[in-house]
Computed example of a mutant assay.
Amino acid sequence: MELWHGSTMIVRHPDLSFCRESNDYGRAFYMTEHLELAREWACRCEEIDGVANRYELDLDGLTVLDLDAGTRSVLEWLSVLLTHRVVNLGSPVALEAAEWIRENYPVDLSGYDVICGYRADDSYFSFVRQFVSNSLSVEQLSWAMRLGGLGRQVALRTPRALDSLEYVGFEPAPARSFYPRRKRRDLEARKAFSEGPGFDPEGIYVLDLVSGRVGKDDERLR
């Protein structure tokens, strides 16, 4: 499996001790299947160039959790995100909804070497805040997570997973080219979202779940 990691430096030997706990899926080494996305992620400003590190991952013998699988609810991904990331929720409704999601859709990551799923960029946090504030339905949140073309991220969480990863080389990521692309992708996601959903009269909103009007095992949530 070919994977890419965007960084300001060449990373031949990834080390979990240098990875932050407060990332989407906790402490892990995060990669993408797409070269161009890795180049964009490598450029956090216009002044510093980056590189896209290329790897080959052998999945044989590794345990993999796919949070974007068709049998899973977007609320499970959201529970993982709200457990690990600091999200400014603001309102009492959003805080109560976030706690309810964490309690009712817990995901135990401890038995997995690799986690696959959505990547939460700036625009995605905006969508999450709107959902937990009861402004988006579950269906609209699932749709919004695919805006911007961020693709999936692959997170390696264990030393065993890193032992199955082979560094192959790198591609340059000039900031003058890829930082504007990164910003444009985020803006286009926000624009597509603003032109898309309005009120969803048939949708399931977070207060439907918190109040018990809709059961957490409702088939429409998957």
Results as ranks from 00 to 15, higher is better:
Leu141Thr: 00
Gly149Ala: 05
Asp217Arg: 11
Lys191Val: 07
Leu150Trp: 13
Ser211Trp: 09
Ser142Val: 09
Gly215Ile: 00
Gly148Ala: 04
Phe193Thr: 04
Glu202Cys: 13
Thr158Ile: 10
Tyr179Gly: 11
Leu147Pro: 01
Val154Gln: 05
Pro174Ser: 11
Gly196Asn: 06
Arg213Gln: 10
Ala161Val: 09
Arg213Asn: 09
Ala192Glu: 14
Asp186Ser: 13
Pro197Gly: 05
Arg181Cys: 13
Ser164His: 15
Tyr179Trp: 15
Lys216Met: 09
Gly215Trp: 03
Ile204Val: 15
Lys191Ile: 09
Tyr167Trp: 15
Ala161Tyr: 06
Leu209Glu: 01
Asp200Gln: 09
Val214Gln: 03
Arg176Tyr: 14
Pro174Tyr: 08
Ser194Gly: 08
Ser177Ala: 14
Gly212Val: 05
Gly203His: 06
Arg152Phe: 10
Trp143Asn: 00
Asp217Ala: 12
Leu150Ala: 13
Ser211Met: 07
Arg146Thr: 13
Gly196Thr: 03
Ser194Leu: 12
Glu202Ser: 14
Arg146Lys: 14
Ser177Asp: 13
Arg181Thr: 06
Ala144Leu: 05
Arg184Thr: 11
Ala189Trp: 10
Glu166Thr: 15
Gln153Glu: 11
Ser194Phe: 08
Glu166Asn: 12
Gln153Arg: 07
Gly151Met: 07
Gly151Ile: 03
Leu209Trp: 01
Leu136Cys: 00
Tyr205Met: 08
Asp200Arg: 02
Phe178Arg: 03
Leu162Trp: 05
Arg190Phe: 11
Ala161Gln: 10
Ser137Ile: 00
Leu136Gly: 00
Arg152Ser: 13
Ser135Val: 05
Ser211Lys: 07
Leu209Gly: 01
Pro159Ile: 10
Ala144Val: 02
Gln153Leu: 07
Ala155Arg: 02
Arg190Pro: 10
Gly215Lys: 11
Gly148Thr: 04
Tyr179His: 15
Tyr167Leu: 07
Leu147Trp: 04
Pro180Asn: 09
